[in-house]
Design a protein around this nucleic acid. Structure first.
Lengths: 229, 229, 229, 229
DNA sequence: GATGAATGAGAGTTCATTCAT
DNA sequence: CATGAATGAACTCTCATTCAT
């Protein structure tokens, strides 16, 4: 009980502070001070700061991974030989992401952490996530491939990353963007509200017409976005 | 010359290290060591680490700001009373963004910095950028507003940031993504090629149908992306 | 034991160096180097250099404060309704001052510190001393008031500060003065000896005839000390 | 002119800052910044910080020394073979001290500096003052000796410094003390008024009965101020 | 099983001084 | 005659980690 208590208090405090300030800007003293546990407890229970960071992620990603595998299993059972539509895949992904922290933790924190994983990952975290949770994403990407047969593979690859950029950027800069939005439009947007706004944009992005890549890299005039200029 | 040399060497080194590791993870000793200047030189020339960070941004954003104002002036002169089409605005923005670092600096670094500005901004940087460069963005957003009268203001704000996320994420992680793309699809993509791929996606994202936000934050059933579920 | 040892060694060394050189001229490296403890130990045990300075004072002033309150309690019990004579008050004050460091620490160091408290106090120390030990001095001053009913309040205020100036100046410049005295008169004076020398001077100062303040601030000729010139 | 200007501005600023904060706590940057001169100017014009400190003192002590010598010359001419009375000597000293800063500088600053010279002197300053201005003080002390033949030499030395402490302490802390006095007693005291108050106190201090120094430093019973205890 | 004490490394910053121009 | 640039040394303080108990 005392141990569980300590470990949990550390994790609860760490995830909040990491989400607020980032990894480097959050010291173990910050965490143990706010959690009211001994400074040495982090190294005692987790071994190192890096291991603590990974543990914070694992507490979200382990259940996410499990649920998402289950959800895909169900989808495959339902659709059988049929192709699962893109929107259903996206919806399933989104629902799982939202479900995981709904129980005990904060969705906002989870999203900020995902953002940090990309923008602040010092290597060890990126590697850890890829090793631990790579398969579930691979499985998802394969289903997306079947759902978008009209897209060339390279095009699909880039579009998925365009969309990933939207999601990661939005959530990693969430606090800043929300501040501006609140100040300028008087609207407080919840994470759920943001996810709803993203839906049509993401779908439209994936289904946009193919680009005209003829003569690429040979034009001397820098006519970038519009064909005609 | 001596001064220019030292100041420039510090800025050149700092922007690369900041882009690679982030602000907190880059010490002044890292910077001055690599730049082969005295440790105290940073504080002598810039006053503090915070001021150095701002100076790194200013070196990109000052010329960007000037060029973009000029470009918009020209557009307004050309179109007169007419509304400037969205695609022309996006094309102008893209051209300016590409021009600035093209001369001496790296597009990738610029994009990484922009990403950091959102995800790592400790307040002082966010405030600085808003104060120094707010007007040019405001002007751009106002023109986008006229070009997309069908979008509610808040919706336009978020979609612009969704798109910004796509651009920054893609270009700031360019090297890694390019490696994967080359390995998996045998295609070497140039920046110009990538910009062409982005064009239809960005336009589609801005013109996607409006989301259904009814009952937001009150729904008990978590039906997120699809209306029907 | 280990802790007591480190804390005590830091305090012992700090008080000597502070007394010798002053606060600003004594670095934490000086202290920890001489005390043979780790540089970080000061911040670990005390939090900051300012807090260390305060702790050095507290180690003298806490017992002083307690003893002086007790001594005054005894005096009041002894004299009952009667007024406590001025000489007894001064004697009690002096005895308490001498007793405190007699046990373990150096009287000279204590005196130098008191001198520094006035001449070098950067604000935080003056505030700290006033907050922590103000009441005991207030109590003393009130008794002096009762012992010198013939003095107007303002006159008593100034004379107490005249005397304070004598004490503080002498002890804060102790080393310098002692050097000169030793060189010129071949006499090594102890602090105890000095206190004995001060006694008749202080008593005489407090009991000096009242000044003639008539026509003050109106004479044009600067005839300062003697009325006749 | 430019040079004179710079040197003067440095001296003017330095004396104020030194008096306010002490020597170690005042950096050359503080001084040159406030004086609006180049940082290197101090080293250029004075050679070092130590030399600047000495120059600050010289600007007060040089005219003081000259005037005081003149004043004593006049006294000796007037009194001839006769002994000059103590009160006349003190009056002369006081008048000279007040005259020097009266012209351009601040009495308070002068007094604070004198206080610092004793409490903060790191050696070089003490030596400098002794070398440069020792003779004038020696001459004064010799006259005091003739005026107080009943005092042992060492006793006279200490009493003069007791009195010096009163004067320096009072005038260097003048503003703070005056505030308290004004608040508590509703009296605004001028410098002239204070000097009048000091006169009987100083005279009484010099003429107080001799202390009983028997058994000094060997007494086991701590009977300090009163003979009887 | 848990913790107070301790530590080496390194952080940003400030310092008086020097030097080339 | 004067100064902007530069520097080596030292500053206080915080860091993640280790260890004896």
């Amino acid at each position: 009980m005392a141990q569980t208590d300590t470990v949990t208090r550390i994790l609860d405090t760490a995830e909040v502070l990491f989400a607020e300030r980032g990894f480097a800007e959050t010291s173990l003293r910050n965490i143990t001070g706010k959690a009211k546990v001994n400074l040495a407890a982090v190294n005692y229970h987790f071994g190192s700061k890096k291991a603590l960071i990974q543990a914070v992620f694992a507490r979200y990603l382990d259940p996410f991974s499990e649920r998402f595998h289950n959800a895909i299993d169900e989808l495959e059972a339902t659709y059988g030989e049929e192709v699962i539509p893109l929107e259903v895949l996206l919806e399933t992904m989104a629902r799982t992401v939202l479900e995981v922290p709904a129980e005990r933790h904060s969705l906002k924190v989870f999203m900020r952490l995902l953002g940090l994983a990309y923008s602040q990952a010092q290597g060890h975290l990126r590697r850890y996530i890829q090793e631990q949770y790579g398969t579930v994403f691979t499985r998802f990407v394969e289903l997306v491939r079947q759902a978008t047969p009209e897209l060339p593979d390279a095009e699909r690859f880039w579009r998925l990353h365009f969309v990933l950029g939207t999601v990661i950027f939005t959530f990693s800069g969430l606090d800043a963007l929300r501040d501006i939005s609140e100040k300028d439009y008087g609207e407080h947007v919840s994470v759920r509200n943001l996810v709803k706004r993203m839906r049509p944009v993401v779908v439209a992005a994936m289904q946009a017409p193919l680009p005209d890549l003829d003569g690429q890299d040979t034009d001397k005039t820098v006519t970038v976005l519009t064909g005609a200029g």
